[in-house]
Nucleic acid binder design. Structure first.
Length: 427
RNA sequence: GGACAGGUGGCCGAGUGGUUGAAGGCACCACCCUGGAAAGGUGGCAUACCUGCAAGGGUAUCGAGGGUUCGAAUCCCUCCCUGUCCGCCA
């Protein structure tokens, strides 16, 4: 949720900032919000004045009753003001409901440093490692995976539908190995607390992180229960502290969780449909940090390096890209995408998105902390980064480490977890 | 799913329809006491919104939403959650 006070105090600046996202509909939404906010205050002042009179008169009734005097005249007069208050309260509640539902659709203010423009203006920050060179034609992962019997995509289609991969044998074990490797790295070396959250969450939780109400088409619903399959562990983990005043000593809080992620990909049909590149269900290790506002810039760099470490340990070449304002997600103020090189498909694949949400999610989820024992509570800042997503990591592992004979070398960091240093096609 | 018992501030916990935003305690903060600390003493200590240059003033909030009433933490209804027991179940 954006800060309505900021919007009210600096409408022009707020508008300019939000317009950098390239969505012109935001401008009219802002105008409506400002008007509703004005109406809200107008009705609030009127209603509260009447309530103050009523409360004073009620106190007088109480005083007289204690003194054993009659209060019938006052009570008679108060009957009608009760009705008036009720009507004004309803009017006020309607205005506030409209205001809130509109405010929930406004994206976060992009950070001033984000590049101007759409995805074509994304900025390369740094890269690590060298894409491998082969003296044979690199095969794509779907061929390698089939010949190595790591997954059976037609079986996944049969039991669920397209985009629901089914892993077999060493392919299934590879998922377990990646989970253990990444969780061990983040818990023992980066200091994260491991969380195993629910995979189904309620409406308030999904609103807190920003998926609802605007992106309802992107999440799977569980009718008739008002529950939703998580699109990322960010959702349940960030909401751990919803409606809390967090102990200042507990900050920064850092959590890591490995969960399946469910995404309808409603607007991406036809894109990257081959193999494991874009699927409806996948596993991902997610890092979440809840920090003091003044720390969030440095924390963003830190969480990004935590994600990068995963790829470095696995020996996978990658690059870090800062997203332009027009490509930055709804709740995010600033995002780095980490893209891994995949030799078979010959491209860079996003395996991690590392974002700072400033106080946007904290406002929605009402997560605050007390800077000092006597100070007023303030909103925390939230950040998250994938650390990292499995399918595209698997793609890179297979495609970059393949040999001419169709076997695949397993990186040293992963071999102990997998119990093998090479995957070999069975005869 | 059924039957009871509950949901009150950061935490615990009291609360007869009317100075109860809410006793008391813990925690926390300031001061006193001390060489320093502990113990003890005194005082302070909810949140949001509106209004005001400010001091301040106002409104709302006792799980959520309705209702009764001049007035609800307190009475009634619905829902949610927690505990205990029963049933079912991996």
């Amino acid at each position: 949720m954006i800060d309505l006070k900021r919007l009210r105090q600096d409408p022009a600046g707020s508008r300019t900032s939000l317009m950098r996202r390239g969505d012109p509909s935001v401008a009219t939404a802002i105008d409506s919000i400002l008007e509703l906010d004005r109406q809200r205050r107008e009705f609030l002042v009127r209603t509260e004045a009447i309530k103050a009179e009523r409360n004073a008169a009620s106190d007088e009734v109480a005083r007289r009753k204690r003194a054993k005097e009659s209060a019938a005249d006052i009570m008679e007069g108060l009957k009608s003001s009760g009705e008036e208050v009720k009507l004004l309260d309803i009017k006020l509640r309607d205005i506030e409901a409209e205001l809130d539902s509109l405010a929930l659709t406004i994206p976060n203010f992009p950070d001033e440093r984000t590049p101007e423009g759409d995805a074509s203006a994304n900025r390369l920050i740094r890269s690590w490692g060298q894409p491998p060179a082969f003296d044979f034609v690199a095969r794509p992962h779907w061929e390698l995976g089939a010949s190595l019997r790591l997954f059976d995509l037609p079986a996944g289609v049969k039991v669920a539908g397209s985009g629901f991969p089914l892993f077999t044998g060493m392919g299934a074990k590879l998922g377990r190995a990646l989970a253990s490797f990444m969780l061990d790295l983040h818990t023992s070396e980066h200091g994260y607390l491991e969380i195993a959250p629910p995979y189904l969450v309620n409406r308030a939780t999904l609103t807190g992180t920003g998926q609802l109400p605007k992106f309802a088409e992107e999440v799977y619903t569980c009718s008739p229960d008002d529950l939703f399959l998580i699109p990322t562990a960010e959702v349940p983990v960030t909401n751990i502290h919803r409606d809390e005043i967090i102990e200042a000593g507990a900050l920064p809080a850092s959590y890591v969780a490995c969960t399946p992620c469910f995404r309808r990909e409603a607007f991406s049909h036809g894109k990257d449909t081959r193999g494991l590149i874009r699927v409806h269900q996948f596993d991902k290790v997610e890092l979440v940090r809840i920090v003091r506002p003044e720390d969030s810039v440095a924390e963003h760099e830190r969480i990004t390096t935590h994600a990068e470490t995963v790829l470095q340990r696995l020996g996978l070449p990658y690059r870090v890209v800062e997203l332009a304002a027009g490509d930055t997600g709804f709740a995010s103020a600033r995002t780095y995408d980490i893209e891994v090189w995949a030799a078979g498909v010959g491209g860079w694949l996003e395996v991690s998105s590392s974002s700072t949400f400033t106080d946007f999610q904290a406002r929605r989820a009402n997560m605050r902390y007390r800077p000092s024992p006597k100070a007023k509570p303030e909103f925390v800042h939230t950040l998250n980064a994938s650390g990292v997503a499995f399918p595209r990591t698997i793609i890179a592992l297979l495609e970059n480490n393949q040999a001419a004979d169709g076997s695949v070398r397993v990186p040293d960091a992963l071999a102990p977890y997998l119990g093998a240093d090479r995957l070999t096609p069975r005869a």
